[in-house]
Design a protein around this nucleic acid. Structure first.
Length: 467
RNA sequence: GUCCCCAUCGUCUAGAGGCCUAGGACAUCAGCCUUUCACGCUGAAGACGCGGGUUCGAAACCCGCUGGGGACGCCA
């Protein structure tokens, strides 16, 4: 039997980082086994589901390279079938109508908690005569869960987990308005989509027991379960907006590469010996739920940064240039000038190994923007004292001699100039860097000069001298 | 409150009873390299939560404690 997994987000917000990891693990499990990875949008909560959220989730998955098999499935499209199953269960005696009002249920829970009992539905309509049904209340349909014994699930990550059946109440299948609940819809859809393995966050572990019995009541085969631990914030608490529970597009805006994100997410809870840098191909070949940790992991930007830095410097120039151009255009809403792009292309090799993100790469690339540096840092200003200015000016005068204007020509000229003036290279290189880039940190200054061209270099020195 | 899950350096992790004097990565610190920054290289510091068992032998298995997390909706 081929392995079929699915990612089933509810489109009520962003594709957050935890969801992205769940999707990744499902995708990996399917690709590893040569099976299928399906996408189902759980939009049964019509009040909170939005088209915008659906679009964001789909964009996020595509950006991460997590392609799904076939078209995405909308849970809402299957409503009629969900209701049908609920009614079949009712007819078969596996379910019953419950006439409780929401207020009544709230009261029941409050009393149970006060008495130290589980706050579960007590089954008050389970065996009651339908003739007692009050007028004017449309009933919900509840499933009959076993009342004795216990239920054990052989979870692929958590191992065997057992829960007393008293903890499993008769949950609602069909709401009073005839709409299916999540619990019903998931089970029906997973069955009809042929899902064989459910991989999801362990916040769903408790649901697995309920769903197990629903599958059984329908006389359907129960899929395998794998509940992966949640991701926590740096302080160990639940991941919040402040931490990293951002949408994946937020990470894109922060300048992270999809390769870095997936490598990071993969290593959060999963390992393959001491391997840290893992390509998608290797991940597909190696992925195994048995290697997934049972404990929750904290989100750590520092490690993500280091991975991002790695993938950035490993990326081939042309695809990186394309990504960078798109990034610059998206963040500034202005496409960089062709001359600037041409310069960046030449300097990308040394630019990319210094940057930790596309944001930093963008900033560093500004030195190749035509014209003198827009801003001059304090440190740079301090380097450009009158001594330095006068030296740079005489150096600029001598640049006309440098022909051709290339790396070795420039270096030879500057070294000769330093020697003649009995100066250490740094005494010239640093002020030069300040004048040319407006900063005290940049790629090798000879390279920057070669790329800028003689005229622009002279012009920038003159501009700096003019203050 | 009830139930479930988890527990190795600051963080992510390796560890499947002897290979552990507990390994790697990120971060940190020191040094080297150097025209700056970054990279790179070398080195340092840094963990089995606690208490009981089981065993010739426990980071690993069992129990308890403590600490963390999750679930308890006519949300998903």
């Amino acid at each position: 039997m081929t392995l079929v997994t699915r990612f089933a987000p509810s489109p009520t917000g962003l594709l957050h980082i935890g969801g992205a990891r769940t999707a990744l693990f499902n995708w990996l499990a399917a690709r590893h086994a040569g099976g299928k990875f399906l996408l189902r949008i759980e939009d049964t909560d019509t009040k909170r589901s939005t088209p915008d959220a659906i679009e964001k989730i789909i964009d996020g998955l595509r950006w991460l390279g997590l392609d799904w098999d076939g078209d995405e499935i909308y849970q809402s499209a299957n409503r009629a079938r969900h209701a049908e199953v609920a009614n079949e269960l009712l007819a078969a005696g596996h379910a019953y109508r419950c006439y409780c009002t929401p207020e009544e249920l709230t009261k029941m829970r409050e009393e149970a908690r006060a008495a130290g009992r589980p706050t579960l539905y007590d089954g008050r309509w389970r065996d009651r005569d339908p003739a007692d049904a009050p007028d004017g209340i449309s009933p919900t349909i509840r499933i009959k869960m076993p009342r004795q014994g216990s239920t054990t699930i052989a979870d692929l990550v958590q191992g065997e987990v057992t829960v007393p059946n008293q903890q499993l109440d008769d949950f609602i299948l069909l709401r009073a308005d005839g709409m299916p609940t999540y619990m019903l819809a998931v089970v029906v859809d997973d069955h009809e989509m042929g899902v064989t393995r459910i991989i999801r966050g362990d916040d769903h572990l408790n649901n697995a027991f309920r769903q197990h019995h629903l599958f059984a009541a329908c006389d359907w085969e129960v899929p395998e379960f794998a509940h992966i631990p949640l991701i926590h914030g740096p302080d160990g608490a639940k991941l919040s907006k402040r931490h990293g529970a951002l949408g994946v597009e937020a990470y894109r805006e922060m300048g992270y590469l999809p390769a870095a994100i997936s490598n990071y997410l993969l290593r959060l809870g999963w390992s393959h010996g001491d391997d840290e840098i893992i390509s998608t191909e290797q991940a597909v070949a190696w992925f195994d739920l048995a290697q997934v940790n049972k404990s929750a992991a904290r989100f750590d930007f520092a490690k993500l940064d280091s991975l991002n830095s790695h993938y950035l410097s490993q990326m081939d120039d042309e695809p990186l240039l394309t990504a960078l151009t798109e990034f610059m255009t998206a963040s500034t809403e202005v496409a960089p000038e062709p001359q600037m792009i041409a310069r960046i292309r030449l300097g990308l090799g040394s630019l990319k190994e210094r940057a930790h993100s596309l944001v930093e790469l963008t900033d560093a690339s500004m030195i190749y923007c035509p014209g003198p540096p827009g801003v001059m840092s304090e440190k740079a200003k301090n380097l450009l004292n009158s001594d330095a200015i006068s030296r740079l000016s005489s150096l600029a005068d001598e640049f006309s001699e440098v022909e051709p204007w290339d790396l070795s020509g420039i270096e030879a000229k500057i070294r000769a100039f330093c020697e003649a003036a009995d100066l250490k290279l740094g005494k010239i290189a640093q002020p030069l860097r300040a004048a040319l880039t407006g900063s005290t940190a940049s790629p090798g200054i000879f390279e920057v000069m070669a790329i800028l061209g003689k005229d622009e270099v002279i012009a920038r020195i003159r501009a700096a001298a003019a203050g």
